[in-house]
Nucleic acid binder design. Structure first.
Lengths: 229, 229
DNA sequence: GAGAAACCTTGACGCAGGTCAAAAGAAAGT
DNA sequence: ACTTTCTTTTGACCTGCGTCAAGGTTTCTC
């Protein structure tokens, strides 16, 4: 398939002139990672960044004893691993393929040259990094200032909103991974889901399906105005 | 004082041609904030960003019940509040002046125009935001995966390194603020300092002075290889 | 399709660290 | 200088959530 065509659908390169898409397409290198494979490890030198064409990737940190905190789960069209491109340092986190994943790898030096000639790419990238900073401030707030039930409630509302406010939520990740996103462990998540079910705030019959029964209660939980019994 | 001259000392604008420094100087607006005054609040619209000329500013999040998590403490020469410039959204956090503070305020639209014509500014800003993302990954790791003694030990080593590895550390913030940076509360910080003193890892006679007595122990604490009794 | 591996749930238990209270010392404002 | 406000410390207490263990279920893998 035509790489330039693929690139034209990436939000990061929206509105880029066709000639520059061709330039990008020439510098891009197709890569493939099997489910579970490492894309990069913390401390690796960063010689460029990836854009996902198919599949999903988790970006995460680990503690010495194996607990992990997920920073992002990246899907089709999203770039990741850009930080070392601009700091000139090493990757600050790990990235593993969650499913079989294809990426386009954009080498650092080529990309920086593109930015020098095409400021719209720079502005797009500044927007991407700023969005990500904003996302991190929310995660930091969650970890530092809110309890797990509030984080879970906020996450449910976020997913619901992404689906036009539907009450039925289909997780596209395992509950173990959801625990990793929320900064907790599967046991704790399981217990909190059980408590929310008992209080008839949600239903969670199926494996990866959760239904919001009492949206007001979920909103109050997320806002910290309500606590589970 | 000449604004262009001030700007030329800011890392963000290193290497910028004098003509563009003049352009920046013309767009910059001098602002002043008294100690304790709010620079911006979470949710305010972001029409530009600040660069500190004198003083110090804390950027932080709060919980409904008043606990706060400090994201950054910014000093002379550092820019802050850039995120809404590139996302077009609102400020994701609060910023208060810790001391009487002067800033140069750079309006959003002017700055974006500058970036369009001067890619080196874009690259500098990308570098700043990437550094900040990296800093946030460390904070997230700390909050999620490490305990307070480890975070404190890492902070002490960080300050020591910034002072050419000196064992004597002079905090330029209060211990209450240090607790806010570490994601804990003053009582907990006080107790941990007392335990570290009892184990002769540090001395903390004076108010804002801490001396590292056993650097190896501090390093092991920071690495999670050692625990306080 | 059988065995292995990963996922999910529930129970008992422990502890890091937060809450509340109180008191002494330092700093800021008038 | 005097008052008010903020900072720091210490003690008693409590709780959210992580650890360990163990069982059942689903999902890969060959």
């Amino acid at each position: 398939m035509d790489i330039a065509k693929q690139l034209s659908h990436i939000p990061l390169f929206q509105g880029l002139e066709p000639q520059y898409l061709q330039t990008l397409a020439r510098m891009a290198i197709k890569k493939f990672f099997k489910r579970g494979e490492t894309v990069f490890a913390e401390g690796d030198p960063g010689t460029g960044f990836h854009i996902i064409t198919t599949g999903r990737v988790k970006v995460y940190k680990t503690s010495p004893d194996g607990k992990e905190q997920i920073l992002h789960i990246m899907s089709q069209g999203e770039p990741f691993g850009e930080v070392p491109v601009f700091t000139g340092q090493r990757f600050p986190a790990y990235a593993d393929a969650l499913t079989d994943t294809s990426t386009l790898f954009i080498p650092r030096d080529d990309f920086i040259n593109l930015i020098r000639t095409e400021p719209s790419v720079a502005l797009s990238m500044l927007s991407v990094l700023s969005q990500r900073l904003k996302g991190f401030t929310v995660l930091i707030e969650d970890l530092s200032l809110r309890e797990v039930p509030a984080r879970l409630a906020a996450y449910l509302l976020y997913i619901s909103e992404r689906n036009q406010g539907a009450d039925d939520i289909n997780l596209d990740i395992s509950k173990t991974q959801l625990a990793g996103i929320l900064g907790t462990i599967p046991e704790t998540l399981s217990r909190i889901l059980a408590r929310m079910t008992k209080e008839e705030i949600i239903e969670s019959d199926d494996k990866r399906h959760i239904r919001i029964c009492d949206r007001t209660a979920v909103e109050e939980l997320a806002a910290g105005q309500r606590r589970l019994a």
